[in-house]
Amino acid sequence: MRTALVIGTGLIGTSAALALTRRGVTVYLQDEDADQARTAAALGAGSDEPPPAPVDLAVVAVPPALTGPTLADAQSRAAARGYLDVASVKGGPRRTLRELGGDLARYIGSHPMAGSERSGPLAASAELFEGRPWVLSPDGTTDTEVLNLALELVALCRAVPVVMDADAHDRAVALVSHTPQLVSSMVAARLEDAEEAAVRLCGQGIRDVTRIAASDPAMWIDILSANPGPVAEVLSEVAADLDETVRALRALQAADDGKRRTGAAGIEDVLRRGGAGRERVPGKHGAAPAEYETVTVLIGDRPGELARIFADAGAAGVNIEDVRIDHATGQQAGRVQLMVEPPAAHALTAALRERGWPLRQ
């Protein structure tokens, strides 16, 4: 691939353009919002001038509802040798392109499993896709050249290709992406009218659960409108669990010991199933999730504190596998939780104590 056209310069389109440009591909940028295309160009994502000739690959990075028509328009202009979209749903765009008379042989659906609660070109990064799964959904009509161009795009973006049927993909993202967004938003919505005293008690748990609730509502309306059926199916299962959990909690309030035991069993069941599901979430480098030891350090809110901790851990020969920060309410301090392999926990604890770091249980 020597040339590419990126249609749509939001977070995903601009990030792909930045990655391609960094690796020597000549990229042209197109967007209905000319200012947004100019912003992406100013960031080094490519040129906002029209390509002088058909490019090797056109990457369509527009909302799902517009993906099919945009693909059909690009094909009608013979803009590229191959066409690929990065919409978060795959069945709908293919069906729309077919209905509009598009060439399915020159098209492949794709979905990079990466993103951010922020949107727009200013949130873009050439490293956004590194190590992340990038779903490709070819079918029996897909031309081999187009599949190869798509695989080259994934490689240039340093992502990991995953081949998946379009409808199977849509069911999967309903479970692992679209439903979590709605559940996060519903939990965060409870905070809107909550008493200030309650909100001040927010800790890391509520921050973890509600982080993605900060996402752009307009973007998510587009996504959910393109995949409502599978999302509704998952949410109906969540709703059934919620109903059972509510009944179990009511039973815990009963005076009868038998009802309380039944309620406790119901709560235990949902917590156990939740833990079993969490254990299936891939860990570092896509491997099975690892059991880490946590070393907790109290730090002040001053420049360079985190850098010093990491430097001291590195000097002790300890690799930090993961890190979390729990900010103290109303104080210029916080707790940093350093996750390490169990054999390294003792060495890290000793090294940090020796360097004067206050540790916490």
Rank of each mutant, 00 (worst) to 15 (best):
D73K: 06
E32R: 12
E291T: 13
V336C: 04
A276L: 12
R278G: 04
G286E: 02
L249D: 01
T210H: 04
T245M: 06
E237G: 06
A42M: 02
D326P: 04
D143S: 03
Y83S: 00
A123Q: 13
A65I: 12
P230F: 00
R77H: 14
A159H: 10
S110Q: 07
P138E: 11
V199S: 08
I325K: 00
V297N: 12
G283S: 00
A58H: 04
A123H: 12
L156E: 05
F310W: 14
P121W: 12
L57H: 10
L18W: 10
A218S: 08
R355T: 15
L147N: 02
A114D: 07
P161T: 11
D301G: 06
L149Q: 08
R273A: 13
I108M: 07
L147S: 06
S184L: 10
A188M: 13
A251W: 02
I221F: 14
V270T: 09
L57M: 04
T296Q: 11
A72Y: 08
L348Y: 12
P358L: 05
L298M: 15
P342M: 03
Q75T: 13
N227G: 11
R353M: 00
A290W: 08
R38K: 09
G24F: 15
S236M: 12
Q36E: 13
A254K: 15
T14H: 06
E321C: 04
L352N: 03
S225M: 06
A239I: 14
R200F: 03
L191Q: 05
D103W: 11
A124G: 08
E354W: 02
K259D: 11
V187M: 07
P133M: 07
A42Y: 01
V187D: 03
V295A: 03
L147Y: 01
G120I: 07
C202M: 02
T9I: 03
A251C: 05
